[in-house]
Amino acid sequence: MYYVARVINDECSKYNCKQCTLFCPEPNTLMYNDEKHHAYVNEERCKGCALCVYVCEHLLKRNAIKMVMPEVHAD
């Protein structure tokens, strides 16, 4: 496995920016949930580039997305 992006929902829902969803290079990987007011990651599609972290942390000076090692469930 490799590191993938994960949204910190409580932090993300303070804003209504959706910027990471636009800058993620992968299709339908970082999406936005309007009802819950936060972005979410389809971890199986994430290639782990961490551009979303650059956008959230570096450009927007927020801290609502991080790279994590996903849990692996061996059958």
């Binding site: 969803t21 636009l22 992968e26 299709p27 339908n28 999406m31 936005y32 290639k47 580039c49």
Partner: peptide, 24 residues
């Protein structure tokens, strides 16, 4: 983009490649 099904599926460009973003 944050809500709809895009007209492109998963592909094999490098992670973080700006060509991928441009295609979106």
């Amino acid at each position: 983009l944050p809500y709809s099904k895009e007209l492109v599926e998963e592909h094999s460009l490098c992670a973080g490649c700006p060509e991928s973003a441009a295609l979106r």
